[in-house]
Structures are given as C-alpha cells and as structure tokens.
Design a binder for these strands. Structure first.
Length: 579
RNA sequence: GUGCCCGUAGCUCAAUCGGAUAGAGCACCAGCCUUCUAAGCUGGGGGUUACAGGUUCGAUUCCUGUCGGGCACGCCA
C-alpha cells in the first residue's frame, strides 16, 4: 500500500498492524483499509482476515475474531464489527469525525494539500501542438487534462513545471510559411494555384494581409519563378509542396527567415493567448529549434553511435530500437542528411533528464501510442532511467454537432477551434467536460447538449451548491472566520455524518488523483459532494433559532464550500458566490 | 495482417490498483416552493457487466479465446 495520508487511515493501519503482530507474528500481509460503499459497513473496512485465511489455514471469521480481540483501544473508534465473509468494519466516533470541520476551516485553501510528492520535481509537458494554426477541440482536452493534472500534482506536494514543446523546426512550419507567402502573392495578383495540402484556413490569409500591409511588394515574385521546376500536384503532392518550399527559400533568400519567424510568432502568440484565456499557463515554452542550434541533436546521435546503437542502411542512419522492444528500427538521420523528428525528440528527452526532474510526464494524444517504445528505447540506450518517464495518453475528443460528428482537419480549415468551443460553451463548462472522463476514454463532446441547457451541465450543479452556501452565509451576516472555533458537536444527523466523512475523504481523493494521474476523480468527488449537500440543504434549515445548532451547521456548510472551492480550483473552474 | 486501448441500464458514464446488494446523470412515471437560490430535492421502473472458459474465499476488475468498436503501424511532424 502507498503512504496513507489521512490521519484516520494511518492511525487505523497502525492499530491493525499491532493486532497482526499479536495474532500472527510471522505474517507480513499488507494492511488495506478501504471506505465501504454502504454506511452500515462502517467508516473503514479491513480485509486482513480474508488475506490471512489461506496461509493460516483458518476460517476468515475466526481470524477476524482474533484480530478484533487484539486490536488496541483507540478514542476515535466507536466500535468494530465482523461482517460478511470476514470483513472487519470500523466505526469512528462522531466526535472524531466532527473534527474535520475545524480542520477544513483553519486550513482554508490549503485543505487537501498533502505531502505525497515530498517536494520532488516533476515536469508535465502537454499540448505541444504545432504552431501552424488555431488550437482545435482535440488540443483542448490535452490542455484541460494537463493543466488539471499539474494542479493536482502541485496539491499533492510535487514541485511542478508545466512545459509546452514548440515544434518550430519542422516541415510543417515551412508549409505554413509557404502557405502564407502564396496567399500574399495572391493579394498581389500573382496566380499560383494554392496546393490542396497547404494550410487552407482564413488565418493564413490574415497573416498574408499583415505582411502585405507592412512590407508592400517586397516579397513578390513571378508565377513562373515560383513554379519553376515544380512537379505537378497530381503526380506527387508532397514533392510539389517541397519544391515550392525550396523555391520560396531560394527566391526570398534571407527574407524567408522573416516570413517563417513571423508566422511562428503569430501562431504561437495566438496559441498562448488562447490557452491563457482557458486558464492554462506554462512555466516553459521549449523550442525544438534550440536543440539544433546548440548542437544537442548532433551530440545525442553521436552518443548513440558511440554506444553501438546505430547502423547505416540505404544511406540513412538507423536506431536499433528493436533491441528495446520496438517493432522495427527507426531512422534518426535521413538519406538527405536531415535529422528526423525522432532524433530531435531524443535530444529533447535527454535535455529533460539533464534538467534534473525526478519525474517527467508527457501528455500525448492516444494516436502517438506507437511512439512510446522507441522513446523509452532511446532513453535506455543513453543509459537513462526510463522509469522516470511516464506517458499519459489522452484519447481524442470527438465533437458532435447537430447529432453528427463535426469534421476536424486543420488543413481543410473546416474545424471547430478551441476558442469557438470556449465562447459557445463557456470556459467553466469546457474545462469541466474535458476532465469528466478518464483520460484514456474516448470523449464524445456534444456541443448541443453542452450549450443548449445550462442545467444539464454537471458543472452548474456543483457551482450551484457553492453559491447556495454563500447565499446562506451572506444572509446570516455573521463573522465567518468565527466559525472556525464553532462547537460542532450538534452535527449528528445522517446527512451531517455523510458530509463529514466526505470532507475527511478529500485529501485521499487528491492522493488517488495524483497517483493515478487522474484529475477526473476530483470531478466525480465534487459531484458526489454537491449531491450530498443538496440533499442536506433540502432536508435542513440553517438559520435557526438555536444559536449552537445554527453555528454548527453553518460551520459544516462553510467547510463544504471551502472544499468545493479547492477542488474546482484544481480543475480550473470558477466557484461563483451568486448564480 | 500485427500492436495498444475499449465493450457496464434506452443514452452518456462511475464502481476506492480483486471486495459485501454493480451506482449516478439524462430520458420516462409520481410527488415537494407564502420561510435560507426549484440550475434543487424525494420516490419508482429499468442489468446474464459483449460472449465462452480459467485463476480463488470472492472477478466489472486478473489470464486465454471469440465477436464488436477506436487508434497506430513513414527516411511525416
């Protein structure tokens, strides 16, 4: 079992460990305490007796009986029962559970922060979209997941660095630069057919207009020059594009770098603004080009060569990734002398490891899963500890509009952008919807549902609960900070017990979400907490005559609101005081 | 064809790294507002967990096979 965080869990584990030593000193079973689904099974259940049944050759209930007798007394334990096949169910005293209210109110925004990470440095790299156009809804999920995951890890006590890998070195950027230039030529009445595999979006025309406005006819060349030696599109679309790029570089000379830089800066800036509006921020924007500029790509290839992991074939340089479990070997340097994306990616990962992170997490689209073995292989070949690297795969979000799949293709220009989605659905609902599924599950994002009726959005359900608490506290108009010292011994009802236990669970939810890299657990927890609060709200009154009861209940719901704020903050969702 | 992921209520999804009677929302039916927000609550019907075996005290969970769906299999990035 991993390090327990809850005081109750640690305490009870310790008690059971003592009982185990007394009953069966030679046994070393792990002590598992879980929260039963049903309240009648107590607050915590231990299956130790069933684990021991086989090695001890005794019936589970006998062993449970012995363990129970050997269990040291504790002032937080109300009673212990044996149930079912041999479960040992522990019931905590009400007083012990009530203590959580004060704990939450005193810790405030820090309630739920745990020491699991022990200050270890972890890097989370996510989004890392090619800066060749607006982010689309698929990127949005990676952004929401990566940002929420980073927040969760931060709350779990890790020192988190959020990073965006900028693919500014590849062919795609050249295609974007070319696309922009061709649109620019079009503005200057130079008739060159626009290739079908170039970037079609309107944003390309916009950039062309900017350049034209700023530099007039400086980059104009004749159609004959542009098309000189270019093979027909119908023959080979890729060769057609590459030849156009080559001509662009030749004709523009040093100006090509300007166009290239301009479109990169524009798109990256747009991407950064888009993400910032979405509440997604990065500590580092890491340039792929820098890996070439400082020679790290060349160095890493040399290192692999020196280690005997490379070989020459068909004029290209191959990495023997099959030795590390990959399906086939991979090219790191092409016949034309250019390094592959894989080569710069190895260099990038080496760089990550050299920066001294204890753990590196890559958030990738699930379509990249075939890429994992070669990256791990390369790390091993370089003598690095590949277990420090975790790839978190995020399945694509499929957008549905009018009950039909919305086509998404960056080049065709017929896609729905993340920005469109945010504006139509709202940032809160968008962030929440994205992390409402396990990340490796397909996500059907039904826009019509998300934007049509706000009351169908689960995020409003949680926010509404928070707003209700705020409303009650406002009408009470007392000193909220005084609730920290409130006597909460009046909290005895089933509704109140349920809420207390929920609040106690919160740090463990953080722990689980951090360990499993699963921020969706926070979303589900908050839905459950909100549901229990709404039931409580409908069944109880808070602003009652009895001062003691009133203060106890207000303290409880103030604690509930605090945990909601904390949880929603991790997901990047606001907690409005009024709705 | 090979590899990875997935298959749970009519729909969208849960189920505490093997636990007790598989749970929510939506939809459907019936109720609850002259007192703190009805974007809420209460109750009801809904299941051979795709299928067939196996492992053990115990399987939605682990293993094998079949069927069905998604993704990936470039000297692209």
């Amino acid at each position: 079992m991993t390090a327990a965080v809850s005081n109750f869990k640690i305490h009870l584990s310790d008690l059971f460990a003592q009982a185990l030593r007394a009953v069966a000193p030679e046994q070393t079973a792990t002590i598992v305490l879980e929260r039963p689904k049903q309240a009648q099974h107590g607050d915590y259940a231990c299956n130790l007796a069933m684990q021991l049944a086989k090695p001890l050759r005794r019936s589970p209930r006998d062993i449970a009986q012995a363990l129970m007798a050997a269990l040291p007394a504790s002032d937080v334990v109300e009673k212990v029962e044996i149930a079912g096949a041999g479960f040992i169910n522990v019931f905590l005293t009400v007083a012990a559970k009530q203590g959580v209210v004060r704990g939450v109110l005193q810790a405030g925004a820090d309630y739920g922060r745990i020491a699991l990470g022990a200050g270890k440095k972890v890097q989370v790299e996510f989004v890392s979209a090619n800066p060749t156009g607006p982010l689309h809804v698929g990127h949005g999920r990676g952004a929401a997941y990566g940002a929420s995951l980073s927040n969760v890890l931060d709350a779990a006590g890790y020192k988190v660095s959020r990073e965006f890998y900028v693919n500014d070195a590849g062919r795609q950027m050249d295609i974007l630069a070319l696309s922009t230039w061709l649109r620019y030529l079009d503005l200057h009445a130079i008739a060159v057919p626009f290739p079908p595999n170039a970037y079609q979006g309107d944003y390309v025309r916009d950039m062309a207009k900017q350049i034209s406005l700023a530099h007039r006819a400086r980059y104009v060349h004749t159609a004959a020059e542009v098309l000189q030696g270019v093979p027909a599109v119908e023959e080979n679309a890729d060769a057609h594009l590459d030849a156009l790029i080559a001509n662009a570089k030749k004709l523009l000379g040093e100006d090509y770098a300007y166009v290239h830089q301009h479109v990169l800066t524009e798109q990256l800036g747009d991407c950064r603004n888009d993400l910032a509006e979405f509440g997604v921020h990065f500590d580092e924007w890491f340039s792929e080009q820098s890996l070439f500029d400082n020679g790290l790509v060349a160095r890493v290839v040399e290192a692999l060569k020196a280690g005997g992991h490379l070989y020459q074939q068909d004029g290209a340089l191959w990495f023997r990734s099959t030795e590390f479990g990959d399906e086939k070997d991979r090219v790191v340097q092409r016949e034309n002398g250019l390094y592959t994306y894989f080569a710069s990616d190895i260099a990038y990962h080496l760089n990550k490891f050299e920066r001294g992170f204890d753990r590196v997490i890559n958030v990738w689209g699930a379509d990249h899963h075939g890429y994992i073995p070669r990256v791990n292989g390369a790390l091993k070949a370089l003598g690095l500890d590949s277990s420090k690297l975790t790839i978190a795969l995020v399945q694509f979000a499929v957008l549905y509009r009018n009950g039909q799949k919305a086509a998404m293709s960056t080049r065709s220009g017929e896609f729905v952008t993340l920005r469109d989605l945010r504006h139509e659905v709202g940032n809160d609902a968008t962030r929440f919807f994205y992390v409402l599924r396990k990340s490796d599950q397909h996500l059907d994002f039904d826009m019509d549902l998300a934007k049509s009726q706000s009351n169908e959005n689960p995020v409003y359900y949680i926010q509404y609960a928070h707003a209700r608490v705020c409303s009650v506290l406002q009408q009470w108009s007392g000193d909220s900070s005084a609730l920290r010292q409130a006597d909460v011994s009046a909290l005895q009802s089933d509704y109140e017990q349920t809420l207390l236990q929920h609040l106690i669970d919160y740090p463990q939810v953080i722990e689980g979400a951090a360990e499993e890299l699963a921020p969706h657990l926070i979303a589900f927890y908050l839905k459950d907490l909100a549901a229990d609060f709404h039931s409580y709200y409908n069944a109880s009154r808070f602003l009652v005559e009895d001062e003691g009861i009133k203060r106890a209940r207000l303290a409880l719901i103030a604690a509930v609101a605090q945990v909601m704020r904390n949880g929603l903050a991790l997901l990047g969702v606001s907690a409005p005081e009024k709705m």
